[in-house]
Design a protein around this nucleic acid. Structure first.
Lengths: 223, 223
DNA sequence: ACCTGAACACCGTTCAAGT
DNA sequence: ACCTGAACACCGTTCAAGT
């Protein structure tokens, strides 16, 4: 029985939106998406579930706020870097944030409000402009990069969720490689042929390679 | 009150996994993700909720089966096409399927099992091979394309969900353009500068342009 | 073998009542 | 103004009982 409130947080600082969001992020990191519950959150904050509604309109806003909180730190800008490096840094920042907070991926990708992706779009777009892309292609270039980043975000979220907590990356990739090697040779000839590459690849480097690939396509537009 | 079972489906053909999945897809299309409920499904099939569990292990499997059903039709192969065209056809097939069934996007992107994306990966990969990409880059090239496709899938799902049912695309895009034009000029200089392009762009053509961009990056690898 | 539907253990959210 | 916690209207899932 988990009813003996384990750590009622420091007793009586008043509730605030900020404390609620912080607790929500902790809960999401610890217990996963299904672990974020108004009751669990209330217990952690030593109140009743209703109190939370005074500061937050509902679960949707809570998730959005948690996503913003995590993503905000990932979008630092480095004014000295080249456009290519700046895009890479931005993208890897998102990648790393999602690695620590896998639940962000699913929400980023499926949230109704574009709010959390808009700052990312802006920053990516500025670098596209700095790359010398013709104006007519700005939107295509920026949104291709964004969509790729978000696609990886979602896939990575799914991967991390699937891996039993505690199993390390290498073991997981080995498992994928084994599964792919066992596929039907006729139906999955290609997938089988890259199973070996999956076994010892580096997710992060692979992600960066994809960014470079797209950047190559983009710079081809400038000529 | 919705309790007067509106159309109890043809009376007594026995329940089957197939009928359940079909009804689930209809329900998802009609009522959205939150509309898929074991009770609503049971009413539509004129049974009790428990009956469904005889044919399906739970909600997860039901969603996966519904996703497979929708995606399966999108993955037809055209043996005569050039690799570039084949990739485009594949990608647009997914795009169109998600346009009709927006709920697929969210599930595709966040499902724990890779099952639904694996056939897509395989087909994309075969074309990458046919493109003459060096073997060491096969995995990167194929997964960059896949991740882009899935990223758009997720975003589009979010868009369609946000648009009030009935509002057409043009109105929605106009709304986005207006919102972007109203952003802070200093903080969102880039986003504002492309607001005009968004107003009258074609989602589908834009998606295809992104595919072409990545294909350009990929063919650059072959040299 | 297959179906029924009440029951169980949860949810998010509301709201009268308290301070 | 802010918090409390019981209550409401739902969920997914189980399971004894029926055919």
């Amino acid at each position: 029985m988990a009813s003996s409130a384990r750590r009622p947080e420091r007793r009586q600082e008043p509730l605030s939106r900020e404390r609620i969001v912080t607790a929500a992020v902790e809960l999401l990191d610890t217990a996963g998406e299904s672990g974020l519950t108004f009751r669990a959150l209330a217990e952690r904050l030593a109140t009743g579930p209703g109190a939370i509604y005074w500061h937050v309109t509902g679960k949707g806003e809570l998730l959005a706020a948690a996503t913003d909180a995590v993503l905000g730190t990932a979008l630092a800008e480095d004014p000295g870097a080249s456009p290519r490096d700046a895009v890479r840094t931005l993208a890897l920042g998102v990648f790393d944030a999602l690695d620590v907070h896998p639940w962000v991926g699913a929400h980023l990708v499926s949230t109704e409000s574009h709010a959390p992706t808009l700052p990312l779009f802006e920053r990516v777009g500025r670098q596209v402009r700095a790359l010398g892309v013709p104006e007519s292609a700005w939107f295509t270039a920026a949104s291709t990069l964004l969509n790729y980043i978000l696609g990886v975000a979602g896939q990575n979220a799914a991967n991390t969720r699937r891996a039993a907590p505690g199993t390390d990356r290498a073991a997981h990739l080995g498992g994928v490689a084994d599964a792919w090697s066992a596929l039907d040779p006729a139906e999955y000839a290609f997938t089988r042929s890259v199973a070996g590459q999956v076994r010892d690849h580096d997710d992060r480097a692979e992600f960066a390679a994809g960014i470079d690939l797209i950047l190559d396509g983009i710079t081809a537009l400038s000529r």
